[in-house]
């Protein structure tokens, strides 16, 4: 009682009880728990994003003074460029814009075929694994291997497979299909390099898609299939009318992550072809890398190109979501 009156004396106007520090902590525990993540995001996420947006309007080689907090840009190493960086590779300079649009075309081809290939390969594997009565664990481990193997090692092994005297040509020759072998190597011929790269991309992205599909398949009630069998539905009809529609949300995730990965990625191209032969596998990510970290060090240009790519990825993701949402809502 005495305690209550003392508290009232301290806060006569509000009429509220004064909370102890402990109570404050308890009330705001949620905020405290997310604070480290928020701070990390603000410093390493938002700040760098804003920095990159502002940088895309400047020419800067990385040596002179450039900062956004407080703002500083010391010429001649740093110069305001306005929209020049964007104009340069989008339309203004015919040579460089030609290279950019060609690289973007490769990105889009890859996005379509790698995504379609991943879905078409992963879904049957997931269905087969889901139905396997024995040895499921072994099969799953085998399927997951590409996902857990170090990328750099995998890419080099594939490069060896694709060489003129590599495994693929040897196998083709040994089974009497020597005419189909790539004399200049599968990554060395313009008509096959992009396809060969996409095969490796599909190979490395299938395991994750299989995991997601398996998880999705296990949520489908068996009753649905039993009812369909009673109604006389064939296996194909079950797949098309039950499995595929119920797996659409999973497919949305796979499609968006795959397109996003393919449009932004460049590591595999960097390691396996460096954009060759004669620019036939050049992608925008690799161009950004070359502008930013090559001997030109045009960091503003690299940022501008990154944002152009972001806009494309964003639009593609929105379109995908819209298409799939309309299908799943029906």
């Amino acid at each position: 009682m005495a305690q209550a009156s003392t508290q009232a004396a301290y806060r006569p106007m509000s009429g509220r009880k004064r909370k102890s520090f402990r109570q404050h902590l308890q009330d705001n525990a949620g905020i405290l728990f997310v604070l480290p993540a928020v701070i990390t995001f603000l410093v390493f996420g938002l700040y760098t994003v804003i920095y990159s947006v502002i940088l895309s309007f400047f020419r800067w080689n990385g040596f002179g003074k450039f900062s956004i907090l407080p703002f500083a840009c010391a010429p001649p190493a740093c110069q305001f460029a306005g929209l020049d960086n964007f104009a340069y590779f989008l339309y203004q300079e015919p040579t460089m814009s030609g290279f950019f649009w060609q690289a973007l075309q490769h990105n889009l081809i890859m996005a379509v075929f790698v995504t379609a290939g991943t879905v078409l390969v992963a879904l049957p594997i997931a269905i087969a694994l889901n139905r396997a009565a024995k040895g499921q664990t072994i099969y799953r481990v085998l399927i997951m291997l590409p996902m857990v193997t170090a990328g750099i090692a995998v890419f080099y092994v594939w490069s060896f497979i694709y060489e003129p005297d590599g495994l693929l040509n040897s196998v083709l020759e040994s089974v009497g299909l020597g005419f189909a072998a790539a004399k200049q190597g599968w990554l060395g011929q313009p008509d096959r390099a992009l396809t060969s790269l996409m095969i490796v991309m599909i190979w490395s992205s299938v395991p994750m898609a299989v995991i997601l599909y398996l998880a999705g398949l296990q949520t489908i009630e068996k009753d649905l299939y039993e009812a369909a069998v009673i109604d006389g539905a064939s296996a194909w009809q079950q797949l098309w009318n039950i499995t595929w529609p119920l797996l659409l949300p999973v497919t949305v995730v796979i499609v968006i992550t795959s397109i996003n990965g393919v449009l932004q990625g460049y590591e595999m191209v960097y390691l396996m072809t460096y954009g060759g032969p004669a620019g036939h596998t050049e992608v925008v990510g690799l161009q950004i890398f070359k502008y930013g970290f090559g001997d030109q060090r045009q960091l503003g240009m690299a940022s501008a190109m990154s944002w152009a790519l972001f806009v494309l990825v964003f639009i593609v993701a929105l379109v995908n979501l819209r298409i799939f949402r309309s299908r799943t809502e029906v």
């Binding site: 490069s159 060489e163 003129p164 004399k183 200049q184 190597g185 990554l187 060395g188 072809t273 460096y274 060759g276 032969p277 004669a278």
Partner: peptide, 8 residues
């Protein structure tokens, strides 16, 4: 040499 464009 074969594969010359992929040879560094």
């Amino acid at each position: 040499m074969p594969n010359i464009l992929q040879t560094n």
